[in-house]
Nucleic acid binder design. Structure first.
Lengths: 209, 209, 209, 209
DNA sequence: GATGAATGAGTTTTCATTCAT
DNA sequence: CATGAATGAAAACTCATTCAT
């Protein structure tokens, strides 16, 4: 019995994922409201009613996707540095990693973001479970590096909006159909690193001054 | 008769604006799809049917709002520098201006962006009429400054995504309910300028190396 | 404007009645749950959506019917006697009147009763607005007649359940398909009067004993 | 094998009863249509599908309950009098018995009645198997008593609607939420007997006249 | 032009019933 | 026989759009 119960659970979980995959695709393509349960069910290869065996609601599908983003973010890890030397190398690697994760989850983000932007209960959940924890963690790390003199003393709370905001903004530009963003996504990573680390202004100029 | 026609035209234009104002508010609050014509009409103080004397469609309201964003952007102006000396001061001022304009139009952006992110015909229109022209213009200016050695030789196409992307990303963070972004919006401007111009890494460190 | 507004109101009220008539018929025939909005709309000669311009809900239709029963009951009047002499004649006339009103509203009662029996919020409303007031009024009248020695001293609270209960029970028997009840409805009135006034047991027998 | 078959039959019958008990409860609480197979199955402690091994249909459950009412009525017995003397005492006892049986089966009645009132095929079955036999039986007894001069010569067909109708009506008042009916159920029995036997009008008055 | 009631297509959701395990 | 997930038909309800006034 334990075994069959276990198999049931595995099958059920697989079905859930199958439905969430379909919802991701359809929400991303058509938006939350224009997406119909029929389309999602058909994309998932199940009957309409089946979806309601796994989700209470159409909007419960969205919560399921939010949880996925959350898990993705957990796995992506934080700004945990070995503390050893090279911050620049570390930052580049970290940013590249985040950009990579972001790229892999653009569809998911596109499925969720437009609705979250417009739905306040969802906003709260998104902010509390996804953004806020990230902020808390990173802030301490920034302050430590600033204390060591490795980083310039910019307000860490604001840096923590600007840097992820940049990634988010690029993702949104991508969703708005900017082909360059899509095609050069990998190169963007190093430009951002370079820009954020060293700034826009030429050193020659600066050193002259 | 010419006069009365003119008056009518003025009244009609005023009515159009009145409806667009209402649509901005209701779309921003509830999202394009959850917003109903009834709500917009009521907010505008007109009857449902009246809206159809000025707009063919619910989605035509959205096009009207897109045009407003376009106008906003036109008025905000480009990166036109007098060419004289201080690029840093100029960039700071420019960024502050754009941030200010953006702040004033957050509601409009929130009304339009989530739907544009999900609606491909709208994307194309948005991209072609709003983003693309901005890029073209700014690119030449960047290249000129890089040629003069004022700016470091980062790929201008990518810079032109990263910098506006940062502003857009911050606006989106705001729409997602990040209170810090709202409260510190004005301070964000100088942090961004500083970060973009000079980078994150402390000069002391750099110069030692 | 006052005139056109008035006309609007009259038309609207007529439409409401038209829909309630249709609902009465369809609910009585098929029961609340098996009745569909489509059927009611079709019976009323309007589109489905039109019903929702006058009633918030399917169950709001039922409330509308309850109100009708209430009005019916108000018009039917109470046990108000001139106080003069002949209680028996008065009671016969009163009962006949109530039976007549009941007959005219059997369809309405059949539409409402089965659902009220099964729906507690509706029960409360039905009891509070329809049954309870009737009880309060009649109780005093009974007690007065008992004090005068006209009526035997049976518990008035219980009499006030038994007598209307008898009418209600006969109506229900009718709804259950008892043909005799339908066909002899008018004769039932005098049998009930006679039974209630004089009892079942023969006077001869009684007087012998 | 004969034995195991017998055991199976007993188990099966027990399961049937278990499901009917559950159906009685859930139908009475929520009404036939709002009751779901899932709720009944859960109340009975079996799986949804199991119910279909014992009943062809949701409405077959109702037929099962109708049969129970029928059995209840059979057991309750008729108006069979020993023919000896005291009709009044007999009638009181009989009525008390019926009221008692009715009280014990109010839940069952509440489960069945509202749906029967609205479902014609069910009505026919209910009428033919339950009401009609009762009528036939009792009518003869009434006529005999009237012939003996024990009872006044009221139309027996109508009396046979009025008396059970009174009980039924009181049960319905109870289902409509009349607390007095519930609380005073036992006292109602003697009031009804008294009223039906002796009438409402005071004997003093009558004898004067 | 302005109005707002009427329309009915389109969606979500429920739930009796089936059937593979 | 028992199970309970899958099914999909059926219903309530919403709302953009039309059009008679």
């Amino acid at each position: 019995m334990a075994k069959s119960t276990h198999i049931q659970a595995v099958v059920a979980e697989a079905r859930r994922e199958q439905v969430l995959d379909a919802a991701t695709k359809v929400f991303a393509e058509r938006g939350f409201h224009k997406a119909t349960i029929k389309q999602i069910a058909s994309e998932a290869g199940v009957a309409d009613g089946t979806i309601y065996n796994y989700f209470t609601d159409k909007s419960d599908l969205l919560l399921g996707l939010l949880d996925r983003i959350n898990e993705t973010d957990q796995r992506a890890g934080g700004l945990a540095e070995s503390g050893t030397g090279d911050f620049e190398a570390f930052f580049k690697a970290y940013l590249e990693h985040r950009m990579h994760v972001l790229k892999d989850n653009l569809e998911l983000l596109q499925a969720v973001l437009p609705e979250v932007m417009v739905n306040q209960p969802l906003q709260k959940r998104y902010f509390d479970t996804i953004l806020s924890p990230t902020y808390g963690l990173a802030k301490e790390q920034f302050e430590a590096l600033q204390a060591k003199g490795v980083l310039r003393p910019l307000d860490p709370d604001l840096l923590l909006r600007v840097i992820p905001g940049t990634l988010l903004g690029l993702a949104v530009l991508g969703m708005l159909g900017d082909k360059t963003v899509h095609e050069q996504w990998n190169n963007l990573s190093s430009v951002i690193s370079d820009l954020i680390l060293n700034g826009l202004v030429s050193n020659e100029t600066e050193e002259k001054a």
